[in-house]
Design a protein around this nucleic acid. Structure first.
Lengths: 130, 130
DNA sequence: GTAGGACCTAACATTAATGTCAGGTTCAAG
DNA sequence: CTTGAACCTGACATTAATGTTAGGTCCTAC
């Protein structure tokens, strides 16, 4: 598929897809005329890349990580070396802390939303009065 | 307490603490000489602010949200209006998606880390051979 | 072959929190 | 008083993904 369709199917801008290629995250064949031609598997890959960005990994680390992932094709094409394992372990720990922060923030938002829906002081009543 | 101690106790840089003040997130009294003087409650507040930043909220939204939070002092000083509730609900949904992404990314990292620790192809063995 | 949409590269802009530096002031201790 | 650490303001820099624009090429349908 070409870049427009991939963008549509992933919700990622064409600009970002080209950036991913530039960063070595996403390869594409080229048509004789020079236009990018992506395999179907690119959809999953792009979604994975977005998740990793959302998790706060930088493109370089994602580039190192991707070849070690098991994708639709089968097993990983590389095994992470000790240095990468150490880095990924640190990232995983950071992600765990981040999840904790997110859960905490979610509660804060939820409290404020709930307080606005129940403006009086009486304790939260989970059932309905009747 | 002064800014240096607050920075030490929260792990947030002095630069960021001043920025939070500038953004209306964190108030401080001033000594006669003009130096910031924070109450003890500032520690919790700064941690909360950091969590909200980590959750991807921008400073302006945090500034609107903070007065509606229940803090150590007691109840919230304001109730979120309908517009803010709508925005916070959208943020909460985004956070939920983000948590999902993070969990997904965490699994990816974990797989790669595990694969590197168990380089052979045999299925994962949770016990020890002996 | 031509029209128009989709695509190409390249360059510059943006955002938002944070880092860093410079030049000056305050504070606590001797 | 003086000294040195801590603090002040203000300005500029950085980062990293993404937006935007310009000027040109490709592709499909007619």
């Amino acid at each position: 598929m070409r870049i427009g369709e991939l963008a549509r199917r992933t919700g990622v801008s064409e600009r970002s897809l080209r950036y991913y290629e530039q960063q070595g995250l996403l390869a594409a064949d080229r048509t004789p005329g020079g236009q990018r031609d992506y395999p179907d598997a690119a959809v999953d890959r792009v979604i994975r890349i977005q998740e990793l960005f959302a998790a706060g990994l930088h493109s370089r680390k994602i580039a190192e990580l991707l070849p070690c992932m098991r994708d639709a094709d089968g097993g990983p094409s590389e095994i992470a070396d000790a240095k990468l394992v150490a880095e990924l372990t640190a990232e995983r720990d950071r992600i765990d802390r981040m999840i904790g922060d997110l859960i905490s923030s979610r509660e804060v938002l939820d409290d404020v939303i709930t307080a606005a829906s129940q403006p009086d002081d009486r304790p939260v009543n989970l059932g309905r009065p009747g």
